[in-house]
Design a protein around this nucleic acid. Structure first.
Length: 589
RNA sequence: GUAGCCAUAGCUCAGCUGGAUAGAGCAUCAGAUUGCGGAUCUGGAGGUCGGAGGUUCGAAUCCUCUUGGCUACACCA
C-alpha cells in the first residue's frame, strides 16, 4: 500500500525529469538509462520518500542540489501531484506523503481483510513443496531440529501468505546402521522396557539405547559389526528384526509427533525412507542404460561430475544396495509424481550443500527438467555459548528439555508477577510464551548464518524477544477489553485519519501500510527474519506511542476513536505477523 | 589441498537492488510510574564495518588479493 504511493511518486518525478531534460537539454535520451532510485530518508523529519539525484547531475551539467530546485519548481507547476509535500534536502528530492489519506485507506483495508491483511498474490498459482525436519528414528529432536522446524514451518506460512499453494513434507530417516544401533542395544539391554512401563517418552527411550550402544561399542569391538549384520537382516526382511524395527520406530515417531504438536509444527505428507530407498535404484539403473552413469569393474555405479567441477560420486554399492543420494533421487521423483510442483524447497543444514548440488545435477542428467526448480534452503548451525553441540560429548540440547525449561521459567514469571488469576490457564500460557520465545529467537537470525543459542538470554523476557512482542499484543487486547467494559462510547463515531498527525502516528501508519511489502520480501528472500525485524520495529514504535500518549483518555471522542482504531490496526498486523513466525497470540499473559 | 559460507559495538544480531551522521537488544551508567498492564519507556557511553587495493560523484554493501573461522569434498545419513 505504501509501495503503491511510492511508485506513484516515482512515476511523477520520472516524468518531470524527462520534461526537464527536454526543456533544458533539448533531448531526454541522455537520462533515459539512468534509473531513478527510491529510498527512505534516515530521519522522519526529512520526509517519507527520498529520490537521490546524484546520477542525473552529469547529464544535466549541474549540481544535484540545483537539479532538486528545478525539479521542485517543475513539479509545483503541475497541479496533478499525489497527496504530499515536496522537500528539498540537498542532493535529495524528498516527499512527505499525506498520511491522513493513507490512514483512511489503511483502515478500510484492515477492516475488510482482517487476518488476510498483508497477504499478497505475488505467488498465486505457484505450487511449492517444502521439505523440512527429517528426523532420524533413533533419537529425539534436538535444538538443531528446532531451528530447522521453525524455518520450514515459517517459510511455508510466508509462501502461503503470498498466495502459493504450499505442501509441507517430512522425510523420516528410519533405516540404516544408526537405526540398528539403538535396536541392537535394546535387544541386549532392554529387558522389554516400553514407554508405558517406564513412563519415558518413546523417542527419549529409543535415544537412551542409542547412547547405550555408544557405551557398549567401547567395551565390545564387535558391536558395530553386529549392527551391520542386523542391517543386512533387516534388508532381507527377517521377521523378528522387522517387528522390533516397527515397534521402536513407532515409539520414536509417536514421541517426535508430540514434540511437533507442542511446537506448532505440522506436515501435509510424511515420506519414509524405508518406502522410498528402493525407488532410486531403478532410476539409477535406467540412467546407466542411458549412459548417464557408468559401471566400475567391481560392479558399483558412478557418475562423473567433472561438468560441474566436482569429482566422481558413487550411486550404487557393488552389492547393489543404495545410498543416501540414491534414495533422495527416488524420493524427489516420487514427490514430483505425487504432487507436481513448480518448486521444491529443501530446508536442510548448509553442511549438505555438496549433497544437493550433486542431487540436482544427477536429476538434471536423468532428464527431469523440473530439476531446475529444486532449491536448497541452507541454514547455519546452532551453537552454544560454550561451543559447538557434540552428541559424543553430551552437549546436545534436547528439544523437549529446552521447551520444558522455557515453560517453567515462564510459569515462575507469571507467579512472581501475581498474574495466575488473569491468565486463567497458567500451563497453557506458559507454553505459549515458551514457544514465542523459542521461535522468535531462532528466526530472528538470517537462516544462512550460524547462530549462537544462549539459553539464559532466550529465557529473558526483556528486550528483543518473542515475549516482548506477545506483551504488546496482550496490552492492546487489555486496553480494548477496558474500552468494551466502558460501554463502547465511540463506536458510532467514524474514523478520521487526518487526526493522526503526530510523528509517532505517521510512522506507525507507514509501517502498517508497508506490511504487504514485508511479507512479499520475506518470500522473495526465503527469510523469516524479515518478518521478525518488522514485528519488532512496529512493536517498539507502538510501545513508545502508547507510553507517551493517552488513547482511551485522549482529549476528544473523535481522537479516542482515531487512536483506538490505530491501536487495533496495530494489533491486527501484529497477529497476522505472529502467524507467519509461529508466535502464539495471547489475550493476557 | 580444492570448493562453499561467514567476519559490523564487550556479547547476540540488523543494515533492502551501492546513497544522507552505520542501527537494535543484552550488559553497563543515569533517569521516568496519582496512568489505558513498569514483562514498559527515555537518555549517556560504546565502531578504523577483519586487512589492503580497485570500480564509482558515493562502498559495510560490488570486484581482486589477503588474514582468520566454520563446513563439505565417505561404497555414513
Amino acid at each position: 500500500m505504501l509501495q503503491k504511493i511510492k511508485m506513484r511518486w516515482k512515476a511523477t518525478v520520472e516524468q518531470h525529469l524527462h520534461n526537464l531534460a527536454e526543456k533544458t537539454l533539448g533531448k531526454s535520451e541522455l537520462i533515459k538509462d539512468i534509473p531513478l532510485v527510491v529510498q527512505v530518508p534516515p530521519k522522519p523529519e526529512l520526509g517519507d520518500v527520498a529520490f537521490p539525484l546524484f546520477a542525473y547531475a552529469k547529464p544535466f551539467r549541474t549540481s544535484p542540489q540545483k537539479l532538486v530546485e528545478q525539479l521542485i519548481a517543475s513539479l509545483n507547476e503541475s497541479g496533478d501531484l499525489p497527496a504530499g509535500t515536496l522537500l528539498a534536502a540537498g542532493p535529495y528530492l524528498n516527499v512527505k506523503i499525506d498520511t491522513a489519506e493513507l490512514a483512511n485507506e489503511l483502515e478500510t483495508a484492515i477492516r475488510n481483510r482482517k487476518e488476510q491483511y498483508g497477504h499478497t498474490s505475488s505467488m498465486a498459482d505457484k505450487r511449492v513443496m517444502v521439505e523440512f525436519s527429517c528426523p532420524n528414528t533413533n533419537k529425539p529432536l534436538h535444538l538443531g531440529h528446532l531451528r530447522n522446524d521453525a524455518i520450514g514451518q515459517s517459510i511455508a506460512a510466508i509462501l502461503k501468505a503470498n498466495g502459493a499453494d504450499v505442501h509441507k513434507v517430512n522425510l523420516i530417516n528410519n533405516r540404516g546402521v544408526h537405526i540398528c544401533k539403538s535396536m541392537l542395544a535394546y535387544m541386549k539391554f532392554g529387558n522389554n522396557e516400553t514407554p508405558e512401563s517406564s513412563s519415558v517418552k518413546g523417542d527419549h527411550l529409543v535415544g537412551n539405547y542409542y547412547v547405550r550402544f555408544a557405551q557398549w561399542e567401547k567395551e565390545d569391538p564387535t558391536a558395530l559389526e553386529q549392527a551391520q549384520t542386523m542391517l543386512k537382516q533387516w534388508e532381507d526382511g527377517d521377521p523378528e528384526i522387522v517387528q522390533l524395527w516397527e515397534k521402536m520406530n513407532r515409539w520414536t515417531l509417536d514421541g517426535i509427533k508430540q514434540t511437533y504438536d507442542k511446537t506448532g509444527i505440522s506436515f501435509d505428507t510424511y515420506y519414509y525412507e524405508s518406502d522410498t530407498y528402493k525407488l532410486g535404484r531403478d532410476k539409477v539403473a535406467s540412467g546407466l542404460k542411458a549412459n548417464v552413469f557408468y559401471k566400475e569393474s567391481d560392479g558399483s555405479v558412478w557418475i562423473d561430475l567433472a561438468e560441474i567441477g566436482l569429482d566422481k560420486k558413487v550411486l550404487l554399492r557393488k552389492d547393489g544396495t543404495s545410498l543416501y543420494l540414491t534414495q533422495d533421487i527416488g524420493t524427489a521423483i516420487a514427490r514430483h509424481e505425487d504432487w507436481p510442483f513448480d518448486s521444491l524447497i529443501y530446508v536442510v543444514a548448509n553442511e549438505q550443500s555438496y549433497h544437493f548440488k550433486v542431487l540436482f545435477h544427477v536429476l538434471q542428467k536423468l532428464g527431469y527438467d523440473w530439476a531446475s526448480d529444486l532449491h536448497h534452503l541452507a541454514y547455519g548451525m546452532v551453537n552454544l555459548p560454550e561451543g559447538k553441540m557434540k552428541s559424543r560429548e553430551g552437549t546436545v540440547v534436547d528439544a523437549d528439555d529446552l521447551f520444558d525449561m522455557l515453560a517453567k521459567m515462564a510459569t515462575s514469571d507469571i507467579l512472581e508477577k501475581g498474574r495466575e488469576e488473569d491468565v486463567k490457564d497458567v500451563q497453557q500460557t506458559s507454553e505459549a510464551i515458551a514457544l514465542g520465545a523459542l521461535n522468535y529467537y531462532l528466526l530472528q537470525v538470517n537462516p544462512l548464518k550460524d547462530m549462537i543459542f544462549n539459553p539464559a538470554e532466550s529465557l529473558s523476557f526483556n528486550g528483543n524477544t518473542g515475549p516482548y512482542l506477545q506483551y504488546m499484543g496482550a496490552r492492546i487486547s487489555s486496553m480494548y477489553r477496558k474500552y468494551v467494559e466502558s460501554g463502547t462510547p465511540v463506536d458510532t463515531i467514524s474514523f478520521d485519519g487526518s487526526l493522526l498527525n503526530l510523528e509517532e502516528e505517521r510512522e506507525l501508519i507507514k509501517s502498517l501500510a508497508d506490511f504487504e511489502e514485508t511479507v512479499k520480501q520475506a518470500a522473495t528472500n526465503l527469510d523469516p527474519s524479515v518478518i521478525t525485524a518488522y514485528l519488532y520495529d512496529v512493536s517498539r514504535k507502538y510501545s513508545k506511542y502508547y507510553h507517551d500518549y493517552p488513547i482511551l483518555k485522549a482529549e476528544s471522542k473523535s481522537l479516542i476513536k482515531a487512536r483506538l482504531t490505530l491501536s487495533l490496526m496495530v494489533l491486527q498486523v501484529l497477529r497476522n505477523a505472529y502467524e507467519l513466525i509461529g508466535i502464539p497470540f495471547l489475550e493476557t499473559m
